[in-house]
Each structure stands twice: as C-alpha cells, then as structure tokens.
Design a protein around this nucleic acid. Structure first.
Lengths: 169, 169
DNA sequence: ATTTATGCAAAGAATTTGCATTGTA
DNA sequence: TACAATGCAAATTCTTTGCATAAAT
C-alpha cells in the first residue's frame, strides 16, 4: 500500500520577511548547550522546517531549503533534522515505512494520527482514554511505557464523498 | 472450495514431528485460485514462515529456508512473502522502520504490539475498548477506518529487573 | 509447448559516512 | 588557529526488477 502524503496545512516555506523564527532560537540554545557551532544552513533548515507545519519529508525540506539557498546538501538536511530530533525539537515518524517524516515537537501536546489512504492527508487527534488504556495494557504485561505509536488508516470525509483517489501525488 | 494438500515425502521442514503444514495448503489454494504455478520453494518458504511463529524478518526467513535448501534466493523469499501478504495470509509490519517483518494472518484475531526497547521482544495484546475508541475518534473526524497500527514501546519485565539491554537481535 | 517461477546480479530508494574544504568561534 | 560543519560522492541497507534459464501445467 503506497501512501501519498499530502499536506493539508499547505504552509509556504518562504521565509516571511521580518517574522521571528522561534524554532531557530530553540535550536540555537541546544547548539550552545552542546558546544556545537552555529551555521547558516542550520538556521535555514530550522526555519524552513518550523514554517512548514508538520509531517514533512526530508525531500520536501531539501526542496524548501534550496529555494533559499540552492547549494544546501541533502546530507546537511539529514544531519540537521537528526540534531533537531536528538534535541527533542522534532519527532521523526515513518507513516509509510519508506520515508521518514518530521514534525515539530516544541511544546506541542502529544497526539496521534489519522491518515487518509486516498489523498494522504494526515490529521491529528488526542484521546486521553486511549492513552490510559495503553498504560493499563502495558502494566498488565509488565511493560514500562516509553513511547507509543497509534496510526489509524482510512478514508477521509472528502475522499469518501465521491472523490475517488484523486491524482495529485 | 476444494483444498488439495500435496505432501512431499522429501525434506520435511516442519519441526513438529508429523504435523501437516496448514499454511502451505492455504497458499496452495490461493495459487490455484489465481492461476499461478506451484513451486517447491514457495512451499518451503511458506512452511518455514508458518513454523516460525511471527514477527520474522526476511533475513530470518532466508536463513531458515536455506537450512533446507541453500539455493533459495532472497528475491524468491521477497516475492513469496509479498504473495502471502497479497493473499491475506500474512501481515507485513515495520516496527523499526527499516526491516519489514511478517506474521501469519490465517484465522488469527486482531491484535496490537508491545515492543521491548531493551531486548526487542514483541508481545501481542488485544484491547477491545481501544478499538472502540479508535473507531469513535475516526468517526468524529469523518474517517472510515480501514486499518490501524498501535505499537507500545517500553521495557519489558525482564529488562526492567536488572538485566541490562542484552544482545538478542 | 506455453507460461510462470527462479536465481543472479544490477538497479532503486532512503539514509549514512569518509574526507577534503569551508566556515565559525 | 583550532575544530566543527558542509558538500560531494561513495558506501550501506533493504527491497525490487530485468533477463536468461529452469520448472510446472
């Protein structure tokens, strides 16, 4: 089953003129803390990432970053995203098993995902009772929960009402 | 529907003394239904797969199959597992995002997974109330559920009581 | 005899890594 | 000036595929 992910929150990655980049500041803090060095492309990748909203692939990040600086390498994007993930500023997800996707983690509450198998739209939801039941199940098995992943695949409202799997990968 | 079980008296891969291979028969039925051709290595892969229990990687399947016939190719194992999955006889899972793992689907009830981040042990569980809540959440968002994936990661009882992350891939 | 399956190796796709060079502090 | 970061290409890992040959119906 190949899932084509389409961003519903079609965020434009273009750097808004004078808008402040909060994600960049968070990354900068981690960089200082770890004794690493600041760099132009790390800022760029962070800006682009936090501007895009969520569930973005590395491919999308590279494309977006290159709109600002055509010479950023995929390696740098991979390295920067890994840094962000290691710092707890981004979560990495693999919805379809092939590409890794990232979403901002800064101060966002926990949530799980609904993924449309028709158009690839990803919706988020939080259900406290499910979390509770998960902990209970884990306890029953003697497990201490660290993380969990809950993904519900199905057809979204739009795709159900007539619109067949539209051609827009 | 008539199911023809052809038992070869040659190399028997089943560990259980004289037990017959039900999985092989199921595969054979699908092969006939689809107008495909029977083959020795498909039987072998099916036998090995259904004998291994579940959550097996292709790598493990290849190794197990080659104990019976050293010349089975990875390509054939991949192709056979994909056939089994397409026929509904196996589920493919990607717990870690890298390797695909398979588990038998024949007549087994739905379940989700608890995965130990220490030793890699995978336990199964079923919690009806979680399923119910999932459907409800999906309905709220206008989704029609097709499948879902729930994985709880944590430390199993064994790993929690002192035993450090032992090497048991 | 016809058509499918296999095996091998090459091809792909996603991600990582070695290393010379550039950039930062 | 040191040392980390970048870019590029080669290397890795998992999986798929093209093609000649073997096997099944």
């Amino acid at each position: 089953m190949r899932i084509v992910i389409k961003m519903k929150t079609t965020a434009n990655s273009a750097p808004r003129g004078a808008s402040k980049p909060p994600g960049r500041a968070l990354l900068q803090a981690q960089i200082s803390r770890l004794g690493l060095k600041h760099s132009r492309q790390r800022d760029l990748v962070a800006d682009v990432f936090f501007a895009m909203g969520g569930h973005v692939s590395v491919e999308q990040l590279v494309a977006a970053a290159r709109r600002n600086d055509p010479r950023v390498s995929v390696a740098t994007v991979y390295r920067t995203m890994k840094l962000l993930a290691d710092c707890g500023l981004a979560f990495s997800r693999q919805f379809d098993g092939t590409q890794t996707r990232y979403e901002p983690a800064a101060g966002r509450p926990h949530h799980d995902h609904l993924i449309c198998t028709g158009c690839g739209t990803i919706a988020e939801f939080a259900e406290e009772r499910i979390e509770t039941l998960q902990s209970r199940v884990a306890a029953t098995h003697g497990f201490q929960v660290e993380t969990h992943k809950l993904e519900i695949y199905g057809r979204c409202a739009d795709c159900r009402r007539g619109k067949g799997p539209e051609a827009r990968p």
